[in-house]
Amino acid sequence: MAGSEKRPRRTKFQSDQDELKLRAAYLYYVEGLTQEQVAQHLDISRIKALRLLAATREDGTVQITINSQAESLIRLQRNLEKHLGLTEAIVVPASSQDEESVAAVVGHATGRYISEQVTNGLSIGVGWGATLQVCMRSLIWREVDDMTVISLLGGLTHATAHNPSAVAWRFAEFYRTELYQITAPVFVPDRELADALWKQDDLKQLYERARAVDIALLSVGDVGTQASIFRRGILNWSDAKSLKDAGAVGDVLCHFVDADGNVLDHPVNHRAMAINPADISRVPKVIISSGGLRKIHAIRAGIAATNAKLLITDVAAAQALLELPPLEQAS
C-alpha cells in the first residue's frame, strides 16, 4: 500500500537467534535447568546462555509474575520489617485465630527456620511457650558438633509437659547436644531468695553464657485470661491484676514489660529465675516466634525489650501490628 512503512526483513541469523533465545528461556524458566545445563543442552557457552536469558527479560519475551497470594505475603512481610525495625519477618497464614491453630502454623514455620540455623559450634538460648512446644515437633535432624543449648528460664517443681524449661531440654535432646539449665523454680517466693540464687557460681556462669549466645529463640505471652502463665497456675490471677494495673502488656522470658518493652519494677519480676530480656538485647540474632491477635501488644513490646530482628508470626497478627505505632530499634 502507498505510504505504508516497510518492515525490515529479518535475516536467517536473527530468526535462529530468536529461536535459540526461546529455547533457552523454556529450558531455564519452565523446565528449571541451571544456566550451566542450558548451555550444555544447547551446545553453547555459559556466557552466551547467560546473555540469551538476560535478553529474554529485556525484550519482554519472558515476563515474570508472582502468585497473588505469595505477593501479598511478601508485601506484608516487607511492610512489617520496616514498621518494626526488623531484619526479617516470616508471616504464615492461619486458618483461624484459635490459639492451637495459630501456635501450630507459627510453630511449624519456626521449627523449619531454626533447623536451618543449626550449625557446628552454635550456642542457642531457648525460651518457652505453646508455639515453641510445637516448634520442637517440626525440627529437622542434622548431625552437629559442639553445639550448646541454654535454657533461659527456670522450671517447675511439679514437672509437666508445659514446664518452662522443657522446651530447651527437648531441643538439646533432639540434636544430642549439651544443655545448661537454671536449676531453680521459674518463680521463687521472694526477691531475697532470687538474689541469693543468682549469686551462686554455677548460675552466675550460666547467666553469662546466656548473654553470649549466638541465637536467642523466644516467644511472648499476654496478660489475659488465656495466657499460659496464669491459666496453668504458674502465677495467680491476683498477680495478673496487679501486673495489668502496673502497665504490663505481656511477658518476655517471664519478665513483664510495658508497651515500650521496659521491664516493670514489680515484685513478680524480682522473683523470676529467668534471664532478663534486656540482657539479651546484644545477642546477634534474637528471634520472636508468636502469633494471634490477642498477643500483638506483647509481640511489639517483646521486640522492643530484646532488640529482636526476626519475627515469625501469622497474617492476622502481622496486619494488626501494622496498625500499632512504628518501632525504632537500637542498631
Rank of each mutant, 00 (worst) to 15 (best):
L122K: 03
E71D: 15
Q205L: 15
G291K: 04
P284V: 05
T306P: 02
A272L: 04
G125Q: 00
A24V: 12
G250W: 02
Y26R: 06
E208Y: 03
D260H: 15
S290K: 13
L73H: 05
V220N: 08
L156S: 09
E208W: 02
E99P: 03
A168T: 07
A24G: 10
Q319Y: 14
N269S: 02
V268T: 05
I312T: 03
E81V: 10
H41F: 09
V106Y: 03
Q181V: 07
N262Y: 01
I124E: 05
T131P: 03
T11H: 10
R211Q: 08
T131V: 08
Q17C: 14
A25T: 09
K309N: 05
S4P: 00
V38I: 08
I47Y: 10
S68G: 00
V105D: 09
D59V: 11
A104P: 06
T61C: 11
Q117I: 06
E328H: 14
E58N: 12
Y207P: 01
T87C: 05
W198I: 00
H297F: 03
A109I: 00
F13M: 13
F171H: 01
R10Y: 04
R46W: 00
Y113D: 00
N79K: 10
C254M: 08
H108R: 15
Y29R: 08
L84Y: 02
W237R: 14
V126D: 02
I64V: 15
I288E: 08
I74R: 11
K295W: 01
M136R: 03
D18K: 14
R10N: 01
L132W: 03
R9H: 11
L197R: 13
Q205I: 12
K199H: 08
L243H: 06
A161G: 15
G60C: 09
A320C: 13
R7K: 07
Q200I: 08
A318Q: 05
I299R: 03
L217A: 01
Y26E: 11
D245L: 10
R300T: 07
S281V: 06
L73K: 04
K309F: 04
V102Y: 11
E5G: 10
S95C: 00
E71C: 08
K199I: 02
Q35G: 14
E192Y: 10
V92A: 11
S101R: 14
E100H: 14
V102D: 11
L197M: 15
F230G: 00
S228E: 06
F256V: 13
D265H: 10
I182P: 00
T34L: 09
L203Y: 11
L86V: 12
A25P: 06
A166K: 07
D190K: 12
V283Y: 06
C254P: 02
R271I: 01
A318D: 05
L322E: 10
V223T: 09
D190I: 00
K241I: 10
G125H: 04
R176L: 05
N79V: 03
L321K: 08
A227P: 09
Q35T: 14
S96I: 03
Q17W: 15
L322F: 12
E31T: 08
P284D: 10
R232D: 06
A168Q: 07
S228V: 04
K204V: 00
A301N: 06
G291H: 04
Q329M: 04
A259I: 14
S165P: 02
T313V: 09
L253F: 01
L310D: 02
S45M: 07
S219M: 07
